[in-house]
Amino acid sequence: MLSLSPARTRSGGAPSPPPPARRDGSPLRRGHRRLAALYAAPMAAIVAVLFVVPLGLMVWMSFNHWPLLGASAPNGVVNYRALSDPLFLHALVFTLKYTVVTTVVLSLVAFGLALLVQEGRRGVGLFRTVFFLPSAVGLASASLLFYGLFNTGSSPLNAVIRFLVGGDVDWLGSSGNALYSTVGMITWRFAGFYMLILMTGLHAIDPMLYEAARTDGAGWWQIMRRVTLPLLRPTLALMMVLSVTGSLLAFDQFFILTGGRHGTATIVVDIYREAFLSQDLGRAAAVSVAILVGLIVINGAQLRLLRRGGR
């Protein structure tokens, strides 16, 4: 039961097969256009009301004075001054720093785990399950769990530190400490998830290629550089995009662990403060629009960079 092995599932280890030829042209189906539209209608309704309308509303709100309570009125681009607010700029710098550190640490750990458990050995399924298990715990729960781990004198973490350095460490007491403690927590929470993604990519590589490289006398490092990494590029790109996007939008972990104190407010914590503490939804919307544009640019650049490097 405990075998997390993608290769054995029914769809096989191969990445998404090309979709088969469209079958909607057959005369049998042509008569059912209206019915088909009806099937798709609930989806269209939810997407329109809860996604397209809010997206438009977000842009509109960003050009209005829009208090949490009370009437709104257009105010031009005044809200966009929030982007030059020192608090926002500080949050931006901190978020970028966090994103870089998290992505590097998480990628390395996840890649190491994936290499460790990719081969079929006895008991490997159990290890895969154990490494993934933290990912089944919610991010908020994980943050609360580590809040207890960091802050109770009886926690083994503090016992070990007391033994090693002879004193207590304030895990969340300064900007630097809070950053690295949070990165540690996030690595624990997400490493198994990214391990699973990377493992899927590794299993999709034809074993014959390794065999051939080995016959040609290639060593472990050469195989890694010339075979594994280039073929893993799409999977690595997916992991990068997910990790960068997730980190740039970090909220739960900092909101719960530090509440944004010690200069650890991220951009989304800043949005939350603008909206619900300063009660200015217009400014929050302006920051949201800016982040949306920024993320589309960053993700587009990442994908293009990785794709071009592949050729």
Binding site: L249, L281, A285
Partner: peptide, 15 residues
């Protein structure tokens, strides 16, 4: 998928 979901929570709150 492309639109980071925390960014549209504020307009969703109003809606």
């Amino acid at each position: 998928l492309m639109v980071p979901y925390t960014t549209i929570l504020v307009p969703l709150y109003v809606l």
